[in-house]
Design a protein around this nucleic acid. Structure first.
Lengths: 190, 190, 190, 190
DNA sequence: AATGAATGAGTATTCATTCAT
DNA sequence: TATGAATGAATACTCATTCAT
């Protein structure tokens, strides 16, 4: 991605995160990117058209996070725990921006492009499940591809529930993680 | 709920659904409700403050749906299937409006009020799980209260994935339901 | 004046004083008067049409003040001092409302009615000057009627200057009064 | 002053004068200035915030007028007459706009800025009085600075009384000028 | 490519006034 | 008379986008 395009995108992530889609002003975005108002439109045709770029960056960040935190050689149980921790962490940091992308569906005409966002996630989980299947760590009846999206949905929704309201304390969140882990474990093993 | 307040809320649901939060005009809402512009502000202090009322109505609809579709006397497996069907159905019909409510979190300052929204859902699932626990239909180590929210999150996220893109066909959706059912079954039984 | 009309007028004085003409709401006025919104319109055809009633009340208050504070039997010098004190006091308490009445000229179509407001003031001063003239306390070339308005204008403008900005302290104000007294004395005597 | 800012200010003076503060529309002001609606807000944050600029322009006009009409080398009596004529003339032409500025005090939060408006006037009169004092044309006990504001107040209030109601005819106004002149003369000379 | 001043369409909200009771 | 819910006209201000430099 062009250097300037990238800095606009990063600034946009910040601004959208802080103010939400509606209240985010192009003037804030360009201020954050250190460019002039007009320059924005050399790189993006409209305010909402930054969204796909944002998604791209988010996917990057996510895969980095997963790669960094999931030990390829560990047992599936360990990997599952690492996956839960990673998703919770990502949700904590980027819940608003992810919700934004989701909400962007309504506001923009970029629906098609979003479809690709989750693919890399799913592929990563799918790979994990496959290895576990081969190693006999999960039941053989598991259809890894289908279960991948279901498993990720499960973890994400739990993380969402945890971080939606700031009132949640750390202990409750830790408990939620353990609950999800146990729930998923029973679902996959046996 | 006051009769006029209710008709404003119902009209708002329609308008928000059709145009999205941003493009929804108060003038459209009042037109739909058959009242004057100023009357709106006798019942709600601002455009976004209708959201909690919308949520209230949605909860009503949802509980009606669950009550109607879940057979209290059926086995837990049957009930789980009915729950999945109901949530998928609700998601299909109201995904936009639910996303709206969720997005409303960011835009408005009504965060506190939303926290109560899911309570009745969870309570319903909790009751289901409890009966199943007593009847020995699910494993005894289940903490029904915690699992209720996780289970609902699981089903909802799967439904979301199914209806996010209209490209999904019926067969895929049916398959998704079966997958979720099996996943949840393994997680809860044993 | 009808009792209710009077209580509306008194409330209007308060509200106009606190918020200014533009920001004064009829709803505030009726709240202060302890009546319903619609009742206002049984006594006044519009918001601005309270103005003449306000003027009436202000004239009342002013004449009371002058009568109370100016000793009919005192020498003209003493009376002049008392007049200055009274006008300063009235200005301090009612500057906004007097400015309002003045500004009301622009906003309302009640121009004609305002013309009468100052008459009683002038008449009072005229009477004072006349007595002083007869007693030989001021120069014989004074045309009392003309000078009355000029004298009152002099004192009022000084008072205005004193109270326009709250920054003025008591000592400065006392000095202003002495200056005006001396100025007027030289103008009238000799 | 920036060229565009000035043209907005001049247009605002016209519009305020014609319609009053309340009914003056920003859309009228920008039309008169030949700019777009949004451009107004590049130069002024709100409708009322043009007021200080208007005051600035008025001060300019006034000082020009005084400089033009008061003969620096004439005797104080002549200068006083010229001052009275100038103030009456200015009041005649700009009474509404001056009242507006005064009223602006109540409506806006620009009170502080107005305090400076009259300074140049006073300074001008002070200078006049000083020269007269040195030349022995007025009594030596005159405190020029204090008397300057009182004298200007006297003349302005007389002018206000003259032009407040359009019914006043030229002869009455000429008489008023003579009365003020005599009043001031007696007050200052001796 | 970059700038940033200028544009002008678009709308939530207020509040004086009305009117059915 | 009195009420107060309902009305709906009216407008300041914002901000995405454009364009002359």
């Amino acid at each position: 991605m062009d250097d300037k395009k990238r800095s606009i995108t990063l600034s946009a992530i910040n601004v959208f995160q802080e103010k939400g889609i509606e209240k985010a002003k192009v003037s804030d975005i360009v201020k954050g990117a250190g460019i002039a108002q007009g320059t924005f439109y050399l790189y993006f045709p409209s305010k909402l058209s930054v969204m796909p770029s944002i998604a791209e960056v988010m996917v990057e960040k996510t895969l980095e996070e997963l790669t960094k935190n999931i030990d390829e050689k560990a047992s599936f149980k360990i990997q599952l725990e690492q996956l839960i921790n990673s998703v919770f962490e990502l949700t904590k940091n980027y819940r608003e921006i992810l919700a934004l992308i989701y909400a962007g569906l309504a506001s923009s005409e970029h629906l098609q492009e979003w479809e690709a966002i989750y693919e890399p996630y799913y592929a990563q989980i799918d790979k994990m499940l496959n290895r576990a299947l081969i190693n006999g760590e999960i039941r053989q009846s598991i259809q890894t591809k289908q279960i991948a999206s279901i498993l990720l949905g499960l973890i994400e929704s739990a993380a969402d529930q945890s971080y939606l309201y700031d009132s949640q304390n750390d202990e409750k969140i830790a408990q939620k993680k353990r609950d999800v882990f146990e729930f998923a474990t029973h679902a996959l093993f046996n």
